[in-house]
Write a protein that binds this DNA or RNA. Structure first.
Lengths: 162, 162
DNA sequence: TGAGTGAGTTGCTTGACGCAACCTTGTGTG
DNA sequence: CACACAAGGTTGCGTCAAGCAACTCACTCA
């Protein structure tokens, strides 16, 4: 997205998209959710331009979706963490993931799966554990590499689970 | 979004966003889901530029998210309908709506609510009826104007429920 | 001393978006 | 008959965001 406002729209979907509808933003959130926390790590993982990443991170911190914490002094270095508001985007990400898997599937199967931490069950498009039936939240699940991961050379190795 | 591809990303979220992550696209899908089907109706409702709307509709038809049907000959006129693939975006839209309502609420309450057609119950962020507990799909629910609709003059009157 | 790293910032170019005008086929109105 | 109007676009132009590469800055390590 270019401009991030949808003038005249009185709708919560439009308001959500004003914040997270910009190009790269949702992928940044996904990566932070998957344990990437540092600038270069995000930049290399996504292949996004550095100035754009910088702008997005700033916006996400302003919007209280990410929190920026210093992890070292000297040359100050920061890590980005999801706030509760950011973690609450999990159902939307899960829905998009499921939609992509269903309607433009990888020939080898999905590249990423989401599983329930507690019981290891697969997570449905609604964020419900298909094994134990519980309604899950971001902290209850973690991503695992799926069978379709190899397709581009497996550059995207599994990142640390939160 | 500008370009609609995220090179190097092996992820279903990224692949979903390549299609529906462009500016306006998801709002167009939302409007069609809410019963707007014609070019001018969409254009006036959204305030999007006509050339952009034209490009988005074409892309959505190519991607099999919308279907274009002639409803009159003479000067051919068309309407746009959601395919099954398009209807399957409903959980993602519901999740985004719920996120917007929760984290950047209207002072007067949400401008739009989604209710279960069968029992009239409110629909949760996971697309589950809070009254009868059923897991819903696009056809099971309809939007109704919420208490926060008046905020900008009520320009967006309720559209026909599907 | 020199190379390397993390986290950006700056400057330039390209291209998507917003806007207004135009086009086409038909219907209604005086 | 002439003219206006409508629906559903297409075309042209200017602006502003994205992509890319180069640069900075403060430190670390060999």
């Amino acid at each position: 997205m270019l401009r991030n406002d949808y003038p005249g729209q009185v709708c919560s979907i439009a308001r959500s998209l004003e914040v997270i509808g910009e190009r790269w933003t949702l992928l940044i959130v996904r990566d932070v959710m998957n344990g990437r926390r540092r600038f270069d790590e995000l930049q290399k993982g996504l292949g996004v331009a550095r100035n754009v990443l910088s702008a997005r991170l700033q916006r996400l911190v302003e919007e209280d979706i990410l929190e920026r914490r210093a992890y070292q002094q000297g040359p100050e270095r920061h890590e980005y963490f999801l706030t509760e508001k950011g973690l609450d985007l999990w159902p939307a990400l899960v829905a998009l993931l499921a939609w992509g898997d269903r309607h433009s599937p990888n020939p080898d199967g999905p590249p990423m799966l989401i599983v329930h931490k507690e019981c290891g069950g697969a997570v449905s498009d609604r964020g419900i554990c298909e094994s134990c039936g519980k309604l899950l939240h971001a902290r209850d699940a973690r991503p695992v590499p799926g069978p379709g991961l190899e397709s581009t050379g497996g550059k995207a190795e599994a990142v640390a689970a939160r």
